[in-house]
Amino acid sequence: MSAPAETAETSSPHHELALEARELYRFYRSGEEETLALRGVGVRVRRGETVAVMGPSGSGKSTLLACLAGLDEPDGGAVHIAGERISHRPENERARVRARRVGVLLQSDNLIAHLDVRANVRLARSAASGTDRPAADELLDQVGLAHRSRALPQELSGGELARAGLAVALANGPDVLLADEPTGELDGATEQQVLELLRSRAGEGRGVLLVTHSPRAIQVADRVIALRDGRVQP
């Protein structure tokens, strides 16, 4: 049975939150035209929870993920990761918070082309500090890529690229993992494998948020947030 659609807010105590965003607004101007991409969106993700964000093209999903990851700045509202504010700070400070606390899995371009898989994971791992960072070889083994550790990105299949990107996103031992259509180009068996890996990370106490159109991804989520025209739908 698929998870029921809910509003973004929950009653979770603050100390259990991996991610909290309140009243996010984002607008873009082109000449005299103004587009409101986000209109007062609030999101909470508890530790150990998997949340799916769904909605039609142009609903604000990718803009929301970029703001949550500190890759873009909201025009209003604020984003906190594990209690630390990432929004409305200089880019170098947002990058430091992201390196310590956030794993980001995009639809493509998760790997540096001239580095092999193991070097990509080690580079992401080196950007963070602390003892909760898994070793590169351990991560690659967990995602089933130990035998491909010396392969360059262009030598990987689509499924291998998705799993390698996930290993990179997890290399810093993040508090929250944000994934944009993580299974969009995968066959059914590989999609299921990646979703199981994501769920296992939530089981370790991380928060997981997926932007997705996939029915399978929605089924593994604890909650579903529906966006339309930049607003959370009831």
Rank of each mutant, 00 (worst) to 15 (best):
L105C: 13
E6S: 15
G60A: 06
A162Y: 01
R122M: 14
Q154V: 02
A167H: 10
L170K: 02
V121Q: 05
R46P: 00
V41D: 07
A18C: 07
L166N: 11
N172K: 00
G188H: 07
E181H: 08
H114R: 08
Y25T: 03
V102N: 07
L170Q: 09
V102Y: 05
E33Y: 05
C67W: 04
E155L: 06
L156C: 10
R223W: 02
A124R: 04
H14E: 07
A95P: 04
L156W: 07
G40H: 05
R44K: 14
E185K: 09
T10I: 15
A167T: 09
A124D: 04
T50R: 10
L68M: 07
L198W: 04
V176K: 03
D175G: 10
L36H: 12
L105V: 07
E196D: 14
E204F: 03
A113W: 11
A18M: 08
L24K: 01
S2Q: 12
V97K: 07
V224W: 06
A226S: 11
L24Y: 06
E191G: 12
A95V: 08
A66V: 06
Q154C: 04
A124C: 05
H114T: 12
V117T: 10
L106Y: 14
G55R: 05
P234Y: 11
G76C: 14
M1Y: 11
T212M: 07
E32K: 10
R133K: 00
S129Y: 00
S200I: 01
R150V: 14
T131Y: 03
A128R: 00
R122P: 03
E73W: 03
R29A: 13
R206P: 00
R101L: 10
L186Q: 10
P74A: 14
P74E: 15
A37R: 02
R96L: 15
D175N: 08
R46Q: 14
D109A: 09
A124T: 00
R223Q: 02
